[in-house]
Design a protein around this nucleic acid. Structure first.
Lengths: 208, 208
DNA sequence: TTTAATTTTGCACGGTCGTGCTATCTTGTC
DNA sequence: GACAAGATAGCACGACCGTGCAAAATTAAA
């Protein structure tokens, strides 16, 4: 699958990384679709060709930007969120990791993938398909953890795991949009409160 | 405030409306920012000047498109949602009206204002400010209805109304994004279930 | 039917877009 | 230090962008 020969020279690799960093920043604010070769070049004080030569099409810039953002998400959300013990603790851990990643402003325009979801939910193409896959894997992660928590007797065994995953995703995503819109971290706190409420509610209905 | 002289001729008014209809459709799918005079002209089989002359700048196209979408939202969500009696019933009514508006595909790209929220949450300017105001008025509407329900003894009087408004908005917004992304109305149903859960939970803690 | 006002078109402008091609650096290897 | 290869710059292209302006087509009132 991987058909790319890696850039050989160190300065090249450095520029390549700098371009992707700027691309992630810009895309989180203005959207992946309004990424522009000229804009990136200006942002980095470099010629348009200096940017373009590293990728050989705009498509590739977009693809690699998404991949790079995926690595950031893995490092900043998934890895820390998965450290706690499986079950309820890990559900809290994952949601908290996401909310903290919003709160810390890892991307200046809020969660890169939330931006992508809203931008490409109705636009068919490769980006749409990638968003589908990413979103499914996030929901599945939560869903699996709900199932585990049920098996451990921590949550109502009659609850629908997919429904619970949805109800946990909803407040953290809205916290993302609103905290960015109003530049107000209190919406992250609302997200935390909502997550606690959802989990506590499902926990209170378990068989004891 | 209104400085515009209305178009005098009937064909002009009709074209004006047709342009706004196409603009709402397109913007809900691809975003307000990627609206383009040429694109609209092509979509309507009309010359670029024929579109441009009706507004006298791109800014005005965007402004009027937002206003037109506001009227649609009022007609399709607020008016039907506000018919039920105030309190819990109206909270259900508003959320259901929103979910139904998603389900019916009033805009082909999902809720126009959810799209706008995600697109402009991090981009300062007049659109950002408009989104702030619209979002606040939606949340305030729900919050006021929660307060009324509390006064009627239908909801836990110790609950934070703003928090509850947030917890109701979250699932309906996520239902919007996911049902569009996967073209699957089951996510609207997930939204309905979540709304019922939030209200039922707050109702079960009321003093009886 | 003439006439005046209002749509609508055609055309031009400077600017940016994505993308090639060629030439000039710059770096790492012998 | 020479040299091959990679990195960056410069320039050109056709396409589309937003916006003006004058000409043509259409409508409504006289």
């Amino acid at each position: 699958m991987r058909d790319e020969r890696p850039p050989r020279r160190s300065d090249g690799a450095q520029t390549h990384a700098a371009i992707l960093a700027a691309a992630m920043r810009l895309a989180s604010i203005e959207g992946l679709g309004s990424l522009t070769v000229g804009r990136l070049a200006r942002e980095l004080g470099v010629s348009k060709s200096g940017v373009f030569a590293h990728f050989r099409s705009k498509q590739r810039i977009q693809q690699e930007t998404i991949e790079a953002a995926g690595e950031v998400f893995e490092r900043e959300v998934l890895r820390p969120g998965l450290t706690r013990a499986e079950g309820i603790a890990r559900l809290h851990g994952l949601c908290e990791a996401y909310l903290s990643y919003i709160e810390r402003g890892v991307f200046p325009g809020g969660c890169f993938f939330a931006q992508l979801l809203a931008e490409y939910d109705a636009q068919p193409g490769p980006v749409h398909d990638q968003v589908c896959a990413d979103q499914r894997s996030w929901l599945s992660l939560l869903e699996g953890e709900v199932r585990t928590a049920q098996q451990h007797g921590e949550l109502d065994p009659d609850a629908d795991p997919a429904q619970l995953a949805f109800e946990l995703s909803a407040p953290v995503e809205l916290a993302n949009y609103l905290s960015v819109l109003y530049q107000d971290p209190r919406f992250v706190e609302r997200g935390r409160t909502a997550v606690r409420a959802v989990i506590a509610n499902a926990a209170s209905r378990r068989r004891r």
